[in-house]
Design a binder for these strands. Sequence first.
DNA 1: CGGATTACCTACATGAATGTAAGTTAGAGC
DNA 2: GCTCTAACTTACATTCATGTAGGTAATCCG
Lengths: 204, 204
Amino acid sequence: MSSAVKRQKTAPKRRRRGPEEARREAVATARDLLIAGGPKAVTLKAVGARIGVTHANLIHHFGSAAGLQSALMGSMVRDLNDALAAAVTNLRSDEGAPRALVDEVFEAVDVGGAGRLAAWIALSGDLEHLEPVRAAVQDMVEAVYEKFAEAGEEGRRRITRAILFMALTAFGDAVIGASLRDMLGEGDDAARDIVARLLPSFFY
Amino acid sequence: MSSAVKRQKTAPKRRRRGPEEARREAVATARDLLIAGGPKAVTLKAVGARIGVTHANLIHHFGSAAGLQSALMGSMVRDLNDALAAAVTNLRSDEGAPRALVDEVFEAVDVGGAGRLAAWIALSGDLEHLEPVRAAVQDMVEAVYEKFAEAGEEGRRRITRAILFMALTAFGDAVIGASLRDMLGEGDDAARDIVARLLPSFFY
DNA sequence: CGGATTACCTACATGAATGTAAGTTAGAGC
DNA sequence: GCTCTAACTTACATTCATGTAGGTAATCCG
C-alpha cells in the first residue's frame, strides 16, 4: 500500500470498438451536439470527448472533419427518408388518414433534428446533401395523389401544392415554431392542427 | 516622367469615416456576406477586407466579433419589423387586401435575408435577439383582427392561428423554399399563392 | 503463444479567427 | 496653424479546430 491510489489491474485502459460501431456512436453523438448546440457545437474534440476518444481517432475513422459532417448528414437524411416512407406506407394502407399523415410528417421533420439539419444545410449552401430527400418527397406526392386526388393533371398539381404546403409548415415549425408559438401564445400542436385542418381542402 | 512608378501626392492613404457610417458600412457588408455564404462567412477579416479596413478596426468599432454579429442581428430584425409594420399600416388603410398582406410578409421575411438570419439565430440558440419581433407579430394579429375577424375571443384565436400559419410558411419558404419547390417542380410564387388562397378561410 | 492488423493514443504542426498593445494620421475645434 | 480626439494601422499573442506522424496496445488468427 504503498499508495492510496492504486491502479486496478483489471482496469481496461482502452476500449476497442469495431469500425462500424465506432462510426455509429460518433454520428449519434454528433447529432445530439447539433440538436443541443447548433452547427458550431459539432467539433471533433467535442464528439470525441463524449464517447471517450480523441479527435485524432475520429479523423482515423472518418478521414476528416468534413467526413464526419457528411456522415451525420447522410444519417439524418436517411432517417428522414425512412420516416417519410413509413408515412407513405401507412397512407397507402386503409387506415391512412390526413391527420395521421400530418403527424407523421411533423414528427419526421422535428425529431432527430432533421428540420434543423436541413436549415443548416440550406444556410451553408451544401444543397447536394439534400438531394436524397427529393425522391422521398416525390414519392409522397404519388401516394397522396393515388389515395385522395381526382385523376388528371389538375389533381396532381393540387397534391403537389398540398405537399409543398405541409413540408414548408413542418420545416418552419421545426426551426422557429417554438419561438413563434410562444410569441403568439399558441400550444405545441398549433401548427399541425392548422395543417391537418387545411390539408383536405387540397384534395377535392 | 522621371519614373514610371510614382506615388501620387494626392493619394489618400487612409479614408476616415465617422463612427456611425463606419458601423453602417460594416453591418451592410456583413449582411451581404451572410446572405451569400452563410453564417461562417461573416468574419471580421472578411468584412474588413470588403470595406478596406483591418479586422482590428472593426473590433475598435464594435468591441468584439460578437458585437458585430449582434449589430447585424439588430439591423436585420429592425428592418423586418419595419416591413411588418408597413404591411400592418397598409392593411389598416382601406386598400389592404389579404393577398397584399401575404406578399408583403413574404417579401419582408425573404429580402435582406431576414428569414435566413432568423434560422441562424434559432439554430445558434440566441433567441433573445428574436425578441423584438414579438411585438411586431402581435401587432399584426391585432391589425388583421380589427379588419377581418368576427369580434370575440374565438375570432382573435382564429387570427392568431392565421398569422402563425402565414409566418411559418413564409419562413420555411425563405430558408428551404427554393430547394423544395425545385424538388416539386413548382414556381417561385407557389408558396405565397397557397397562403393567399387559404388565408381567408381563417377570417370567417 | 506469436505475429499481424488496426483501433487508439500522444505530441506536434498549421491555419484561421479573435483579441491586445502601441503606435500614426486624419480631421474637427480652438 | 496647433492641438487633441479617435479612426485607423501594424505587430504581436491566444485560442481553437483541424490535421499529421509515429508509437502503443487490443484483438483476431495461425
